[in-house]
Amino acid sequence: MILCVGESLIDMVPEGANYRPLPGGAVYNTAIALGRMGVPTGYLWPLSRDRFGETLMRPLAEAGVDTALCPRSDRLTTLAFVSLEGGEARYFFYDEGSAGRMFSPEDLPEIPETVSALFIGGISLVPDPCGAAVEELVRRVRHRMPIMLDPNIRPFFISDSNAYRARLERLFAMADLVKLSGDDMDWLMPGKSYEEAAAAILARGPRVVFQTGGSAGARAFWAGETQIAQAVRVEVADTIGAGDTFNAGVMAALDHAGALSRDALDRLDAQTIAKALTLGTRAAAITVSRPGANPPWAHELEGQPA
């Protein structure tokens, strides 16, 4: 089972002069997408007992995601008000004292042996105590299972960039797979090309750095020749959840190929990485073709060109 650890929240998406509340959060979206693709998936993050918490629970259950590890909280659910600019999503967070924000290392459960891989990322890595909780969990399980990290950097959410950069440095050193958008790379290493940035991160320890670029497609940098997947052309409704779904496609493809284990990562080959890139871009294309973070189900990916 792949365990996804990180934020869930309510995206307040503009609808005319009003806002429509939709379940979201970078790591939550990846968990939903993995579950819909038929991959055994678990989710770990505090879920509020408020009405928004119940709204978040329903899609997890519908996608078959195991929430047994999720603590329930009387604190409120995080809200993210979404602004769409040219189809691109921008976010404004209401997160102080929320259920997820106050998740601490002392709240971490024991991770069962059924968990075979860990996915982390999103704004949950930025503030404490929740950022410290995720980092501590990675430290505890990294020798047991592969770790995939997507920081999904939101600069306006970061109050202490030095502390956040230091945390990412520690996490890069413990991660096996890293996904970064072009914007992420520009923020992390301004002035460097994507190739230079990826090489610098690979030198810290990860096996593969996946770089997404929207309509420019995606690339995978690793010890071998760079792999490239062209973007699938669709009419874009918005980009909410695109990168999160890409992550799920990558992990689903690696899991299907039996490549999502510590031993298998030592034997990664170009064909396996290329298939992971392809499924990631195909799945993301479906998500951007419809409003909100609405990842595809397995049957929607069947019969499409690989």
Rank of each mutant, 00 (worst) to 15 (best):
L9V: 10
L9P: 05
A17E: 15
R20D: 12
P21L: 05
V27L: 03
Y28C: 05
I32S: 04
L34R: 09
L34H: 13
M37T: 07
M37G: 11
Y43M: 09
S48D: 05
S48P: 09
R49D: 10
F52S: 03
T55G: 03
R58P: 00
P59Q: 06
L69Q: 02
C70F: 05
C70S: 00
P71W: 02
R72M: 02
S73Y: 03
L76E: 04
A80F: 02
F81V: 06
V82D: 09
S83V: 07
G86C: 02
G86H: 08
G87A: 11
Y94K: 04
D95V: 10
G100W: 01
R101T: 07
R101N: 05
M102N: 08
S104L: 15
L108Q: 06
L108V: 08
P109M: 04
P112C: 11
S116K: 13
S124L: 03
D128S: 08
D128F: 00
P129F: 05
V134C: 05
V141P: 07
V141L: 07
R142H: 02
P146F: 02
I147H: 02
N152W: 11
N152H: 08
R154E: 12
S159V: 15
A163H: 09
R165P: 10
A166T: 15
L168K: 09
R170I: 10
R170Q: 15
L171T: 15
A173R: 13
D176A: 10
V178D: 07
D183R: 14
D186F: 09
W187E: 15
Y194A: 14
E195S: 14
E196M: 15
I201P: 13
G205W: 10
V209W: 10
T212N: 00
A216W: 01
G217P: 01
G217T: 04
W222K: 09
G224W: 13
Q227V: 05
Q227R: 13
A229Y: 03
A231L: 01
A231M: 02
V234P: 05
D238K: 07
N247G: 14
G249M: 00
A253P: 09
G258V: 12
A270Q: 11
I273N: 00
A274D: 01
A274E: 01
T281R: 01
A284G: 07
P291G: 06
P296A: 02
E300N: 02
G303S: 08
Q304T: 04
P305E: 15
